[in-house]
Amino acid sequence: MAIFVMRTLKNLDINSSIESNRLVFKESWSDRLDTFFVYFAFFAIIFLMVLCFSELESFSKNGLEYIILISIIIFYLYALYCKLSEKKLKKIKFNIHREEAKKRIIEYGKKYKFRISKPSDKLIFLNEPTDNFSIQEYERTIIIFFKENEILYTLIKEGARVNFPVLFSQHFTKRAFKKILTQPKIETTKNYFNGFFNEL
């Protein structure tokens, strides 16, 4: 039997989260330590890449090395941004009834085999496994808050050792949500990228 592990959102304040457009909950000391470690790791890698960059003698002789180092720096800056903004709720507006929007999100979750949990009429969790090399099955969670004419959502991950941020699938999730909340009829065509992009 699979044991699913989701990020702990202790005392999640639904109304405050919706009002502030940011997850409001009580973080444990282990979550805070984990966040500090991720920030430290990203800053350390970026700092080392900048040092390596300054050691290169000539752009004309080492053009490929410059390109590689710049690409690595940009990637880790993006990953750092994702970690810094993972609690910020993204917004998608719609013109349908809120209950219809909720129904479409639930159908989307069922279609792509998410584990769905619904703590309240204003909130839904869509969970999917992210770590296939562990006894426990850690999850990536899409947290969705419902308002009258919009959803507020974000993606967070649980990992075997550290909770690295969600990097690329958040963009495909945004695209999928916009599509299902604005189209007149739900399509049944499978989203290829949803299954393909499962970050480490």
Score class of each variant (00 low, 15 high):
residue 24 V to N: 06
residue 200 L to E: 15
residue 84 L to F: 14
residue 115 R to M: 13
residue 171 H to Q: 09
residue 190 K to F: 13
residue 146 F to G: 05
residue 120 S to W: 07
residue 139 E to T: 15
residue 103 K to R: 13
residue 117 S to R: 15
residue 19 E to M: 08
residue 186 I to A: 06
residue 83 K to T: 01
residue 157 K to T: 14
residue 23 L to D: 04
residue 136 Q to V: 09
residue 108 Y to M: 11
residue 58 S to V: 08
residue 145 F to E: 01
residue 186 I to C: 00
residue 52 C to Y: 06
residue 144 I to N: 02
residue 81 Y to V: 09
residue 140 R to W: 00
residue 40 F to D: 01
residue 181 L to C: 08
residue 162 V to H: 12
residue 11 N to G: 01
residue 182 T to C: 10
residue 21 N to G: 08
residue 127 N to H: 14
residue 118 K to P: 00
residue 74 I to E: 07
residue 95 N to V: 07
residue 126 L to K: 07
residue 149 N to Y: 05
residue 176 A to D: 15
residue 197 F to S: 09
residue 76 Y to V: 02
residue 49 M to L: 14
residue 181 L to I: 10
residue 152 L to P: 01
residue 58 S to P: 04
residue 165 P to Y: 04
residue 130 T to L: 11
residue 29 W to E: 10
residue 51 L to W: 01
residue 150 E to M: 07
residue 17 S to C: 10
residue 126 L to N: 08
residue 77 L to V: 14
residue 95 N to G: 08
residue 193 F to A: 12
residue 154 T to I: 09
residue 17 S to A: 07
residue 173 T to N: 05
residue 163 N to Q: 05
residue 116 I to S: 04
residue 196 F to K: 15
residue 25 F to Q: 02
residue 195 G to D: 14
residue 64 L to V: 12
residue 172 F to T: 13
residue 14 I to M: 05
residue 39 Y to K: 11
residue 133 F to S: 13
residue 128 E to G: 09
residue 80 L to H: 07
residue 134 S to A: 14
residue 55 E to V: 00
residue 50 V to T: 10
residue 10 K to E: 12
residue 190 K to V: 12
residue 34 D to E: 07
residue 78 Y to K: 06
residue 170 Q to F: 01
residue 37 F to D: 00
residue 131 D to I: 11
residue 192 Y to S: 04
residue 106 I to C: 01
residue 28 S to I: 04
residue 196 F to R: 15
residue 123 L to H: 08
residue 89 L to N: 05
residue 95 N to L: 12
residue 139 E to S: 09
residue 177 F to I: 08
residue 165 P to W: 04
residue 45 I to E: 02
residue 65 E to S: 13
residue 178 K to I: 00
residue 84 L to Y: 11
residue 25 F to R: 03
residue 60 S to F: 14
residue 100 E to V: 11
residue 68 I to K: 09
residue 161 R to I: 13
residue 170 Q to T: 06
residue 131 D to Q: 14
residue 88 K to F: 09
residue 9 L to I: 04
residue 17 S to Y: 06
residue 37 F to N: 06
residue 198 N to G: 08
residue 57 E to V: 04
residue 129 P to Q: 09
residue 91 K to C: 10
residue 109 G to D: 02
residue 66 Y to E: 08
residue 19 E to Y: 04
residue 40 F to H: 03
residue 170 Q to C: 05
residue 42 F to D: 04
residue 71 S to W: 08
residue 11 N to Q: 14
residue 131 D to Y: 08
residue 114 F to M: 11
residue 79 A to G: 10
residue 190 K to R: 13
residue 147 K to I: 00
residue 108 Y to A: 01
residue 117 S to A: 11
residue 15 N to A: 13
residue 163 N to P: 03
residue 6 M to V: 11
residue 65 E to W: 12
residue 66 Y to M: 06
residue 96 I to W: 03
residue 92 I to P: 02
residue 6 M to Q: 13
residue 101 A to W: 01
residue 3 I to W: 05
residue 171 H to C: 00
residue 69 L to P: 07
residue 176 A to L: 10
residue 3 I to A: 03
residue 3 I to E: 15
residue 39 Y to G: 03
residue 58 S to H: 07
residue 27 E to W: 03
residue 30 S to M: 11
residue 92 I to L: 12
residue 14 I to L: 03
residue 31 D to S: 15
residue 41 A to D: 05
residue 28 S to A: 07
residue 158 E to A: 12
